[in-house]
Amino acid sequence: MLLWPLVRRRLGPYVVLQTLGDPATQYSDALVERCANREPWIEAAWNALTSLAGIDAVLLRGVRADAAVAPVLAARCGHFVTRREEAPFCDFRPDARGGPVRRRSGRTLNTLRRHRRDLAEHGAVVFEIIGDPAGRVAAMREALRLKQAWLSRTNRISAGYAHPANQFFLETLATDPDFFAARITVGGETAAVEAGIVRNGIYASLVQSYDSRFAEHGPGRLLFWHMVEHAAEIGIEVLDFLAPSYPHKREWANDAMPVSDYAIPLRIWGRGVVTYIKHIRPRAKTCVERLRRLRRSP
């Protein structure tokens, strides 16, 4: 009837509950049967969680406004929201709330076409959707290699990509029938990879990577453009770019879903977790980002 996948972890001196798969997962929610009694079940599940012994706080990252648990969390824990964001998406359905998907302006289309022509100078440009499981696994492995190269080149640290289970999980996921992988190659060499899950017509983007050799020609943007233009053929009705709402995502989207992060203390000691999440960690990330920029500057 209800499944809420959580995991018990240590965060410094604190013991917290987090969504299973965090930080790789993008959304936090429970799986609940659709029926009239679902909210009382979620209430009961939340009461069970908050009564667990030895848990200092519950951390839920990426709770969508339409999540099954959203009403209960908003009513009980709205003042423990640590971040509000949006997940942009393209809704290709005729009755889309945000109206028809925005088509690119003539200027943007000209830029994209120029990028495609510039890429063609390096070799034949080919867009492909990878259908066989072995090919998808190989594409995911390649996407992760390119992502790690980008992280190293830009002196960035990603908790999700640094996690030892991340590659195993994504490569295993690539064998699922609902897994989707698209690639743009230039002269037979990979320029960009896009990978995610298509289920019930909804595509959730998981990994995007590109080769730095082709970066100035925007291969990632060209791949998104191809997907948007051929969404119906691919079987995509809603293309979810996931949070956060970066400009390169909003460029294609015609709507967005509000998303919230929660840090909920279950006892007084757990308020230290909230302080860390809301104040200490953002400042630490800012300092790391400044150091990264200093290292990159000549």
Results as ranks from 00 to 15, higher is better:
residue 4 W to T: 01
residue 6 L to G: 06
residue 7 V to K: 11
residue 8 R to A: 10
residue 9 R to G: 07
residue 15 V to W: 14
residue 15 V to T: 15
residue 17 L to Y: 13
residue 19 T to H: 14
residue 21 G to H: 05
residue 23 P to R: 01
residue 25 T to P: 00
residue 30 A to D: 09
residue 35 C to Q: 06
residue 38 R to Y: 10
residue 39 E to R: 08
residue 40 P to W: 01
residue 46 W to I: 00
residue 56 D to K: 04
residue 57 A to F: 03
residue 65 A to L: 05
residue 71 P to L: 09
residue 77 C to R: 07
residue 84 R to F: 07
residue 88 P to D: 12
residue 89 F to K: 08
residue 94 P to Y: 10
residue 95 D to I: 03
residue 96 A to S: 15
residue 98 G to H: 08
residue 103 R to C: 02
residue 103 R to T: 11
residue 106 G to C: 06
residue 106 G to I: 00
residue 107 R to N: 14
residue 108 T to R: 12
residue 114 R to V: 05
residue 117 R to S: 14
residue 118 D to Q: 10
residue 120 A to Y: 02
residue 120 A to W: 02
residue 120 A to G: 14
residue 121 E to H: 10
residue 122 H to G: 00
residue 123 G to K: 07
residue 125 V to S: 01
residue 125 V to W: 00
residue 125 V to K: 00
residue 126 V to S: 07
residue 128 E to H: 05
residue 129 I to L: 15
residue 131 G to A: 15
residue 132 D to R: 10
residue 133 P to F: 07
residue 134 A to V: 13
residue 136 R to G: 09
residue 142 E to N: 07
residue 143 A to F: 03
residue 144 L to Q: 11
residue 146 L to S: 02
residue 146 L to Q: 05
residue 146 L to I: 01
residue 148 Q to D: 08
residue 148 Q to I: 00
residue 150 W to Q: 15
residue 150 W to D: 12
residue 151 L to G: 12
residue 152 S to W: 04
residue 153 R to Q: 11
residue 156 R to C: 09
residue 159 A to N: 02
residue 163 H to Y: 08
residue 166 N to V: 05
residue 170 L to M: 13
residue 172 T to G: 06
residue 173 L to R: 08
residue 177 P to D: 11
residue 179 F to I: 07
residue 186 V to K: 03
residue 193 V to C: 12
residue 201 G to C: 13
residue 202 I to W: 15
residue 205 S to A: 13
residue 206 L to D: 02
residue 206 L to S: 05
residue 208 Q to T: 13
residue 209 S to E: 08
residue 213 R to K: 11
residue 213 R to C: 06
residue 213 R to F: 12
residue 219 P to L: 01
residue 223 L to E: 09
residue 224 F to Y: 14
residue 226 H to M: 04
residue 227 M to W: 02
residue 228 V to L: 14
residue 229 E to N: 13
residue 229 E to F: 05
residue 230 H to E: 09
residue 231 A to Y: 01
residue 238 V to W: 04
residue 238 V to S: 10
residue 242 L to K: 00
residue 248 H to P: 04
residue 251 E to V: 00
residue 252 W to M: 07
residue 260 S to K: 06
residue 263 A to S: 15
residue 268 I to C: 05
residue 269 W to L: 04
residue 271 R to N: 08
residue 273 V to E: 08
residue 279 H to T: 13
residue 281 R to H: 11
residue 283 R to I: 01
residue 286 T to N: 06
residue 289 E to C: 01
residue 291 L to H: 03
residue 292 R to D: 06
residue 293 R to D: 14
residue 293 R to W: 08
residue 294 L to G: 02
residue 296 R to Y: 02
residue 297 S to M: 15
residue 298 P to T: 02
residue 298 P to Q: 12
